[in-house]
Structure formats: C-alpha cells, structure tokens
Design a protein around this nucleic acid. Structure first.
Length: 486
RNA sequence: CGGGAUAUAGCGUAGUCCGGUUAGCGCACCUCGUUUGGGACGAGGGGGUCGCAGGUUCAAAUCCUGCUAUCCCGACCA
C-alpha cells in the first residue's frame, strides 16, 4: 500500500504525496493545472462558506465579472502591466479547422483585439465602476467575486502555485482615502480571523516592501504563515490601491459640494493556496491533520463486525451513534467500505479526520464506543450517553492545533540585529527573523541575493536614531520579518 | 526562459546498450472462497495503437530523424 515520504526525508515530496494519497487533488493534463477532487473540494468549500459569510456580514455583495479581458484594459495601469504581462494566457483566435482529423487554428479567425484570460480582475472591474459611479451617493461600492484566474507560471506546485486557481477577490471603491484604508485593514482582520479561528493557523501580518508589493497597489498588507519546514507562505493579501485604478480608468465622482473628486480603491484575496498552507502547517508523517471547524468529516465511524454477528442489532447500534452525532450538528460519516479495519485507521489518519469512532463487537456488547483523536492519538472508551461531549472534544482539538502551530511559529522566530549572525542562522536552518531595515531597495535586494531570504512584511515603523538597519547600519525605518518563502 | 531526466496497462516498472517467440513483473481492478481490533490471504481472470509522426530493415518497444508532453533543478511569481 501507498506510504508517504517522511517530512524529515523530503518535505516537498511529503507534501505532494499527502495531496495525492489523501485524494485531495491530482495533476491535470495541461502543465500546471490541477483537478481538485471531491475530498479536496469539500475542504475548500468549508473554508469558502465560512469566508463567504464573513464577507457578506461585513457589507460586501457577491457578483461575477467576465473571464475575458480586452488586452487594452491591462495596458491602462503602468505598474499593473509590468507585473502581469509576463504571465498571461492570451486568446488570439476563435476557430479551429479540422484537417484529416488534426485540428489547426484557423488563421482567418484571428481576433481584432487579443483577449487576456484574467490574471486578476481590477481592470475589468474598474472599467465597469466607471459606468456605476458618478455621484458620492454611488459610493462606496463593495463587491466580491468567487472566480478562477490564470497566471502562466514557470514553476508550479499543487495548490501552492497552479496555472489556474480558485479564489475570492474583493474590489471596493470609496470616496476617501481614509475609508479605503480602513477597508483594507478591516479585511486584514477578517483574514486573520479566518486563519486563526477556523484554519488554526497563526499569522504574522504587516505591509509589503516596495519590491514585494502588488502591481498597482500603494500598500499591500499580507498574511504570512509558517510551514512545518519553517518557510514562509503568503496566504492572503489586502491592497490599498489609492487612486491608481480610478485614475487609469477615469473614474470620478461629484461630491456633496458639487466638486469632481477621485475614487479610492481596495482589492483583496485569498486562494486555494490556503489549502496548501493548511496541509503544511498541520500535517505530520501520518498525513493530513484538518482542524475540526473545516474538516469535511469531523468524526468517522468504523464498524468492525467481521462475522456479521447479530447484524441487525449491531447495525442499529452503529446507526444510533451516527444519529446522535448528527443531532449534535457534527459532520459524521460511517466507513462501510470493504477494506480491513487497519487500512481504514491509516486511511482516515492520512485524510486527517479529527476524530474516529471504532465500534466492534466488544464495544457493542458493553454498550461503549472507542474514540480516537487524530491530533494526540489518544484512545478512550465512552458510553453512548457521553457522545454529547464530542463537540467540546472537537473544540479542544481545534484549540490544541492552533496553540501547537503558534508555539512552533514562536520557537522558530528569532530577533537579532547582526548581519553575520543572520547569515549564519539562515544557512543552518529556515526560520523567521525579526530585525531592523533602512527601507531601501538595495539593502533588501542584497540580503535576498546573499541569503535567499526576503522581507515577508513590515511589522511596524520605527523612529529611534539608536536603531540601525541590519545590513547597511543606516538608521532603521522599519521592524520587519525576513524568511525564505514559497 | 536556461540545465537535466523521462515517456511501455489505471499507477509503478523490466526489456532498449547488442533489433528476432505471444512485451514480463508488482500494485490496483473483476470473480470465487477464506478473512477482518493498526495498511489480510489464496486461486482464477480482464486490461497494451510500447508518447506522436516519419525513416532504416525480411523483422522495430529496441536503431535514425523530427515533434509533443510531463517531471526535477535554477531564474520569475499568489
């Protein structure tokens, strides 16, 4: 049977093994594409549903904008062009001709204007916002869309970087800078809550440096997370776009005072990449470990009755247990597959189900069930009457997963301000390093070239002449966190 | 976009150097039986345009040419 590579042997291989073996996803026929299988998709759906209600509760409305974007739209915002030009799928023709069963592009169907498959939707959305905004009464507009986008990446990995991925992209338009900035920050908090409370993933949050900022943003805030191999993964971003897109698409509004004013923008998103984070933050050598709140199966029941003794009564007993859990709103399923118990135990550990309930003849006769925790491996016999405590066990697992991930992040985050120590530490192991930086591109670039570590985010600004940049020794402007990143 | 490797059943592979039976094996699958508390076992069975297109030859998975795709490593990126 399939065994997965140990994390310590080859973390990258472990990651791929887990995804394929746990049946989350598999490779699509076109390079960089991925089929998200039912188990992986239901995981995504649970996250999506949670986030979707947060988005709606915070006053946003869902809408849908087209996949196809005229090439000319992308040209309108200079930095945006620069950022995305190198990774766009382009539609140039609309017809194929069949020659002896071989399909060829019909040259006569060449498009007047080439069409871009959206790498993100700012341009098409701001094109529409121009039509929608004339007065201060039209603002703010707070739109979100769940969509797929395409970025033609050189190097791809399941969930982390695929040519096509699923995400949510929020786009808002505001009358003032303050309001847009407040929106940007509110979203950061929303993502923080999603990651910490639901995915049990601790975060490190801050602004991006010039070099790492989103193409077309004035400020990018990012949600940084630490994987088990101690590399950083940017798991979500929220951008303050200033008036860049408003200006590029000529969107203006008339104020109460009848003055023409520019429109301020934000955009923000999290993608299926977050599933990658989930895998790499919690997984172990047995496989996935999914936090109860988003687990497709919170409890899996494994009946063990090889000889079908007292079949009817036994099955009724199992059903009773199942129904009790259902009534407690626990996502629960019974594994009646033809596999041996041993296989099922391993398989559900691989798939990361938080709790397992074994019911054999032994339990049946004693009116008990055996509960086994994925996180600790602990087994406990309880009576059916005690099943109601499982909801709190699940919460306990959820909290435990968050706190152990938190401890891991803390234990592997160091504060230092000596460059030779910095280099020594990073050459030895991956980690997060908090340190001071002078804010210059040159220092950042040099550090990246020498250590491969990048500024993940700016934690805070500093104004103290005693604090010096770790690289240049010049007065420091920011406290930042460095790490090697995915 | 550079460097490397690979392409044989659903998956993993042997065979390729040195052309020659009906392309072999493991896993998975199907049937039957025995099993089942930490990845069960036996017997039987089905499944292959050997990546694609040409060429050499009496004969090509094997040699030659071209193409395509994927994987790994770098540069770039959510």
């Amino acid at each position: 049977m399939a065994k997965i590579t140990k994390q310590s042997d080859n973390f990258a291989k472990w990651y791929t093994d887990v995804i394929l073996e746990a049946d989350l996803a598999e490779y699509g026929p076109v390079k960089g594409t991925m089929v998200i299988k039912p188990y992986g998709y239901s995981l995504w759906e649970n996250v999506k549903d949670t986030l979707n209600s947060m988005i709606k509760e915070s006053g946003h409305e869902n809408a849908y904008f087209p996949l196809f974007i005229p090439k000319s739209f992308l040209e309108k915002e200079a930095k945006h062009v620069e950022g995305f030009a190198k990774e766009c799928a382009v539609v140039t023709h609309s017809k194929l001709i069949s020659e002896d069963g071989v399909l060829k592009v019909d040259p006569s169907s060449k498009l007047e204007e080439e069409i871009i498959v959206r790498p993100t939707s700012e341009t098409i959305i701001w094109h529409m916002f121009k039509k929608w905004v004339t007065s201060y009464r039209d603002l703010p507009i707070k739109i979100n869309q769940w969509a797929n986008v395409v970025r033609w990446e050189m190097r791809t990995r399941l969930f982390l970087r695929t040519s096509e991925f699923l995400w949510q992209e929020g786009h808002t338009a505001h009358a003032t800078k303050e309001e847009a900035m407040a929106e940007t920050l509110m979203i950061v908090d929303m993502y923080k809550c999603l990651f910490e409370d639901h995915l049990a993933i601790p975060t490190m949050i801050g602004r991006k440096s010039n070099m790492e900022r989103f193409a077309g943003a004035d400020e990018t805030y990012s949600i940084e997370t630490m994987m088990r191999d101690k590399k950083a993964l940017q798991a979500g971003t929220s951008h303050y776009l200033g008036t860049n897109f408003g200006t590029a698409f000529d969107v203006k509004f008339q104020s109460k005072e009848n003055k023409e004013q520019p429109v301020f923008a934000t955009s923000w998103g999290v993608s299926t990449r977050m599933i990658g984070a989930l895998i790499m933050v919690h997984g172990d050598d047995k496989g996935l470990k999914i936090p109860p709140r988003i687990a497709p199966h919170q409890v899996v029941i494994i009946p063990i009755n090889p000889k079908n003794e007292e079949k009817e009564k036994f099955d009724n007993f199992v059903d009773t247990i199942y129904n009790k859990l259902k009534n407690d709103s626990i996502r629960c399923s019974i594994d009646n597959s033809n596999n041996s118990p041993g296989f099922k135990f391993n398989n559900w550990e691989l798939k990361g189900a938080p709790l397992r309930i074994d019911i054999g003849l032994k339990e049946f006769q004693n009116n008990k069930v055996t509960v086994c925790r994925r996180d600790t491996g602990e087994k406990e016999e309880i009576s059916p009457g005690q099943l109601s405590q499982l909801s709190s066990t699940l919460e306990d697992i959820q909290k435990g997963m968050y706190s152990s991930a938190s401890t891991f992040l803390e234990e592997n985050t160091f504060e230092l301000n000596d460059y030779s120590e910095f280099k020594k530490l990073l050459s030895k192991e991956n980690c997060f390093i908090k340190t001071y930086w002078d804010g210059s591109d040159i220092s950042e670039l040099k550090i990246k070239q020498e250590t491969k570590a990048t500024i993940r985010c700016i934690l805070e600004d500093v104004n103290d002449s005693n604090l010096k940049c770790i690289f240049s020794g010049e007065p420091a402007k920011h406290l930042v966190v460095f790490a090697k990143a995915y």
